[in-house]
Simulated scan of single mutants.
Amino acid sequence: MDEILHRTDAGVSWIALNRPDAMNALTWEQRERVIALLDAASGDPGIRAVVVTATGKGFCAGADLRSGSATGERVAGDVARMIRLGAQRLITAVLDCEKPVIAAVNGTAAGIGAHLALACDLVIAADTARFIEVFVRRGLVPDGAGAYLLPRLIGPQKAKELMFFGDAVPAAEAARLGLVNKVVPADALEAAAREWAERLAQGPTRALALTKQLVNASLDADRTTALAAEATAQEVNMTTADANEGVASFVERRTPKYLGR
């Protein structure tokens, strides 16, 4: 059985974790495959949006701690290297993907699974989904960019509450906090993700990519840097065919037909 299911439909790359019996706990092989698919989406003009989801009742229960080898002596720096090359690469691949990425969270998203979802540009959750900062339950520090992502989404005080206690956050509460864009019935999740993804796939792809970069970078930039980046992005964007089409369609009072170029 393929541990990652992948298909492309109507310009949308659908990536699904597929270890339902393990609540989609993430293995090394799965992580590398997801990273490769996100990288491929950036460079493929035929892909104009991405959906990350999962099969079964869980979205991702975190890293599969049973899949690693316990043999051999641990050397100072090994753990930091593993995190840098593993969980952090996965989250970075989502943040840096040049196409908009939607998380369709079908069930429990815990640990790196929660961070995988929250790194996406838009998050749609089934009403049965839960988000859990599970690290404290294992005596661990949050990794996979959790301490970077959460304060930027919900502020430092609430982020510390979730990380200090490790309580499960139901989908409705996650939406109230601003972790989730939309909550839908479980049986409507795929349709909701498809609707948004196909809308994005019909949009001005390069403008969306530049917008994503501007928003992500603004969280770490001063005003002068952010405004300079904005001006540069608009300069670059105005060279695209879609920008010309957008302006022309406005002048001609017709619906634009964006090609993603």
Rank of each mutant, 00 (worst) to 15 (best):
A171T: 01
A171R: 02
A171Y: 02
A171G: 03
A172N: 12
A172D: 14
A172C: 08
E173G: 02
A174W: 03
A174I: 04
A174F: 06
A174D: 01
A175F: 02
A175D: 00
A175W: 05
A175P: 06
A175E: 14
A175I: 01
R176Q: 14
L177T: 00
L177S: 00
L177W: 09
G178F: 05
G178I: 03
L179W: 06
L179S: 00
V180D: 00
V180G: 01
V180W: 00
N181F: 08
N181K: 08
K182S: 12
K182V: 14
K182Q: 15
K182M: 14
V183R: 05
V183M: 06
V183P: 08
V183H: 10
V184D: 01
V184R: 02
V184A: 01
V184S: 01
P185L: 04
P185D: 07
P185R: 09
A186Y: 09
A186V: 12
A186I: 05
A186M: 09
D187K: 05
D187S: 06
D187M: 02
A188Q: 14
A188I: 00
L189P: 03
E190V: 06
E190C: 01
E190A: 10
A191S: 15
A191H: 11
A192C: 08
A192V: 10
A193H: 07
A193I: 03
A193T: 05
R194M: 02
R194N: 03
R194T: 12
E195G: 06
E195R: 10
E195N: 08
E195Y: 07
W196T: 11
W196L: 10
W196Q: 09
A197V: 07
A197C: 01
A197M: 04
A197Y: 04
A197E: 05
E198P: 02
R199F: 10
R199A: 15
R199S: 12
L200G: 00
L200W: 12
L200V: 04
A201R: 13
A201M: 13
Q202F: 07
G203A: 13
G203R: 01
G203D: 10
P204C: 05
P204I: 07
P204Q: 09
T205V: 10
T205H: 08
T205C: 09
R206H: 13
A207V: 13
L208P: 05
L208H: 07
A209F: 11
A209Q: 14
A209K: 10
A209I: 09
L210R: 12
L210F: 13
L210D: 09
L210A: 11
L210E: 11
T211G: 14
T211N: 12
T211S: 14
T211F: 13
T211R: 14
K212I: 03
K212N: 08
K212A: 04
K212L: 01
Q213S: 11
Q213L: 03
L214K: 07
L214R: 10
L214N: 05
L214F: 12
L214E: 09
L214C: 08
V215Y: 12
